[in-house]
Write a protein that binds this DNA or RNA. Structure first.
Length: 646
RNA sequence: GCUGGCGUAGCUCAGUUGGCAGAGCGCCUGCCUUGUAAGCAGGGGGUCGACGGUUCGAAUCCGUCCGCCAGCUCCA
């Protein structure tokens, strides 16, 4: 009986039993056949050599030939590269035992217990990677056809057991009853693998082994430490080079280097995870915080400040003591137990509960920029991106169920204002009910629907993140993309039915009865620390004028121009702009370079000509010499730039 | 926290077999008085991460601890 394949363009193609993806590609055209890597039958991605009816018993099924241009095709391509890497390692270190080798974002890794022909463990370092790459190139040049075999569980256990492949045996043992055990073979190499794979190893065009690091078997620190080889593969050398360039550029922009170089912040071993903010960094901090205040006040938020240290009873009540204590700085004095707050929500609940609330008071929007402290494990600290001291642009909205959608719309407005202004695109994800949750599924469904509806009402779309919500409620996650195309989760909005319950929060409704409010936790920047780390890397330290700690530096040519330079600086400062004078006895080129390196947006050179005509010679950080301008003219232009946040 | 690597001047880094702690940049001083990305000369600056051990002698060898880096795990 024939199968009807519905192709991506809507065309329907009837194929006879036994027809494979490769046959279909060949029938469509030689070019597609050449580019074909795998096929998609219905929802499943399969080898080109699989007969279509093997995969789907349906008489009519959607079908597509995948090339390296399809994300799913690229995954197959990379997964085969993973096998090629394992094969190469096996050739160089024959007794290597393989664990798992999945595709990840931007590449792949393979965890393995690397052992030489004598069976002794081998510790790989960066110097060993070129040899592995060279061997991979051979495997690719040999162009081994890749075949799929279905084994019985016993066969698999016996074969892998014989080779001492303890990890593979464990994986086989963990497969669910009745699961198909598949093995992929290429030349002398075979591996337990779900697949699918490319038709042959020769299809790989551009790859690189990136690094080696330790990783525990199954992520469990009580189990053996394996070596994880990271690699990646791309459709072409150009794309690989582009990827490697981005990696280099990211290193160059690393906020841990740029921040101290620009005098923004300091990290000291005296206070691991607690950054020191220097005058310029704190200028940027205040600009961001004040901008946030301005935006939030316009949205009806009220700012509060709550205690940094509170008694453990509060944390017991909020549930933190039970679930979050490992991440809290706790202290004991005079038989009393205290903790430094890791979050603001419990304190905001106390404020809410401090008065009898009417439905007329809602929504109540409490914002706070206070300091939080979380005891992050030492190995997880990372510059500003993961710290122990953090300040969120935090707020809790206490609302009636009917108000959820409207309040979420307000949060979306804030997110759009902030990330739109910064030129950072973002994706919205709706994280729904996880397997472990509290509350009524019907309430969850209403809440999820309200979040989705609010996003759509704002003219935005969202990606569903099934089961990724918090246990107490669904949430929206905003994933922003920086100038290098990297994604960061900064803003979130979470619906919470749990805290109002724990703190017995209520409002008097129009009906005179008590009702439970819903809480929305939300942050737009996330934490100021992390956000500033992201911003430093996004702008590579070259902040737009409105955020630049120093917006202009005045450079007198010779000593006799110093007084004029000071007068100019005073005038600019008087207009509310941030300006410095660099009158060091260095050549003008030297001081221009210094200002460029410090990423100052404007350099104002003043010599005889400028002093005579009461002008400044303007040089832009990008764009070079702009020629002479009157001081009021320069001030007006810079103020317009700052006000426009350009 | 676990595994591995690394801690030498503010920064980037040399430092041989265990034998007088160095360079470049930055900083300070002087000279130059400067025209759009590094002028010249001189100077200050170090408990070589901390503590303990081995040794006639330790930046160097050993141990413990602290910090940083890359992962694992978790997350903003």
């Amino acid at each position: 009986m024939s199968v009807a394949l519905v192709l991506p363009d809507g065309a329907v193609r009837e194929v006879a039993p036994g027809t494979t993806g490769r046959d279909v590609a060949a029938a469509i055209g030689p070019r597609l056949l050449r580019d074909a890597l795998a096929a998609r039958v219905g929802e499943r991605v399969v080898d080109l050599a699989r007969p279509v009816e093997d995969v789907s018993g349906e008489p009519r099924v959607s079908f597509a030939i995948l090339t390296v241009r399809d994300p799913a095709g690229l995954e197959v391509y990379r997964h085969t590269t993973t096998h090629v890497m394992a094969q190469a390692v096996r050739r160089l270190y024959p007794r290597t035992r393989l664990a798992i080798g999945p595709v990840i974002e931007d590449g792949f890794y393979y965890d393995m217990d690397v052992r030489g022909s004598d069976g002794r463990p081998v510790r790989l370092s960066a110097e060993d990677l070129p040899a592995i790459e060279a061997e991979m190139a051979k495997v690719i040049a040999e162009d081994h056809p890749i075949s799929r075999e279905v084994w019985s569980r016993e066969e698999a256990r016996a074969a892998f057991g014989r080779d001492g492949e303890v990890f593979k045996v464990e994986i086989v043992d963990d497969l669910p009853e009745g699961a198909e055990v598949t093995v992929y073979r290429q030349g002398e190499f075979f591996d337990l693998c779900r697949g699918p794979h490319l038709p042959s190893t020769g299809r790989i065009r551009a790859f690189k082994v990136l690094s080696v690091a330790g990783a525990y078997w199954r992520g469990d620190e009580k189990r053996p430490m394996l070596q994880r080889l990271y690699g990646t593969a791309f459709a072409s050398e150009e794309e690989l080079d582009r990827y490697l360039w981005v990696q280099e550029e990211a290193k160059r922009r690393d906020h841990r280097r740029v921040g101290p170089d620009l005098g923004l912040f300091l990290l000291r071993e005296e206070a691991p995870g607690f950054p020191f903010w220097l005058p310029k960094g704190y200028t940027l901090w205040r600009l961001l915080e004040n901008w946030s205040r301005e935006l939030q006040e316009a949205e009806g938020y009220r700012e509060v400040r709550t205690p940094i240290i509170m008694r453990s009873e509060l944390w017991e009540r909020s549930g933190h003591w039970g679930h979050y204590q490992e991440n809290m700085f706790t202290l004991r004095r005079d038989q009393e137990q205290f903790a430094v707050k890791p979050m603001n929500c419990p304190a905001h609940c106390l404020i809410y509960a401090s008065e009898t609330r009417s439905y007329r008071d809602l929504p109540l929007r409490l914002a706070e920029y206070g300091q939080l402290a979380r005891f992050e494990r030492s190995g997880t600290l990372h510059g500003l991106l993961r710290v122990r001291s953090l300040h969120q642009d935090d707020a809790h909205l206490f609302v009636t169920p009917e108000q959820i959608q409207g309040e979420i719309a307000g949060v979306l407005r804030l997110v759009e204002r902030v990330y739109g202004t910064l030129g950072m695109p973002y994706e919205i994800r709706l994280a729904t009910r996880p397997d472990e949750y509290i509350g009524d599924p019907a309430v969850w469904e209403r809440a999820e629907a309200a979040l989705g509806a609010a996003v759509e009402a704002a003219g935005r779309s969202f990606v569903l993140a099934p089961k990724e919500g918090a246990f107490y409620g669904p949430k929206l996650e905003f994933h922003v993309t920086d100038a290098l195309g990297r994604r960061w989760q900064c803003a979130t909005a979470q619906l919470d039915y749990n805290f109002p319950e724990r703190f017995d929060l209520a409002y008097i409704g129009a009906d005179g009865a008590h009702h439970r409010p819903v809480m929305i936790h939300r942050a737009i920047f996330g934490s100021l620390e992390r956000f500033m780390g992201v911003l430093i890397e996004h702008f590579a330290g070259a902040f737009p004028a409105w955020l630049a700690p120093v917006q202009a530096v005045v450079l007198p040519i010779a000593d006799r121009h110093a007084a004029y330079a000071e007068r100019v600086a005073g005038e600019i400062r008087g207009a509310g702009l941030r300006v410095e004078v660099d009158a060091r006895p260095e050549k003008i080129g030297h001081r221009i370079r210094a200002a460029q390196v410090q990423q100052v947006p404007y350099m104002l050179v003043v010599g005889d000509r400028e002093a005579d005509e009461r002008k400044v010679a303007v040089r832009a950080r990008r764009g070079g010499d702009l020629g002479p301008r009157g001081v009021p003219e320069f001030v007006a232009a810079l103020r317009a730039e700052v006000e426009g946040k350009r």
